[in-house]
Amino acid sequence: MACSCGNAEENQEKYFAPLKKVLENYDKKAKDLIPVLQETQEEYGYLPQEVLEEIAKSLRVPFSQVYGVVTFYSQFHLEPRGENIIRICMGTACHVRGADKVLDTMKEELGIDDGETTEDLKFTLESVACIGACGLAPVIMVNDNTHGLLTPETTVEVLDQYRG
């Protein structure tokens, strides 16, 4: 968020600098919208409105279209996200091997619902479609690490590793 104290213009420039860098690698056409959004989200952790407006301007696409794309794909987020992203696989194999219980345990432990972020911005919890590690069902991904063959007890153990 652009800050209102001090030199507004300078802050503004600083704020958009990562976006400018991302845009440098593209020839600024509508077809680049998704990769630009992906890289921008990498930089900011989520997609703030001001940033989306800038992207719409640079790629010369209507803001409504940018918003449409962002809300269509589950990978994009309009709200700040936790330091650790916990993805609970809800695929078929995990479902029949008790993914619900893993999700319930996580909700209970973190005190948040599916799709929410803890107040201290430490964890975001989301249930996702199959992550393709069905041999180890039920599985979760914490950031880029896969943890498999979970029970409610080992779920808590995994979570503790990231509580630090």
Binding site: M90, G91, T92, A93, H95, A129, C130, G132, A133, C134, G135
Partner: peptide, 11 residues
């Protein structure tokens, strides 16, 4: 875009 839950051969 192997999205079918329960499939991971393409991966």
């Amino acid at each position: 875009d192997e999205g079918d839950p329960g499939a991971f051969m393409d991966r």
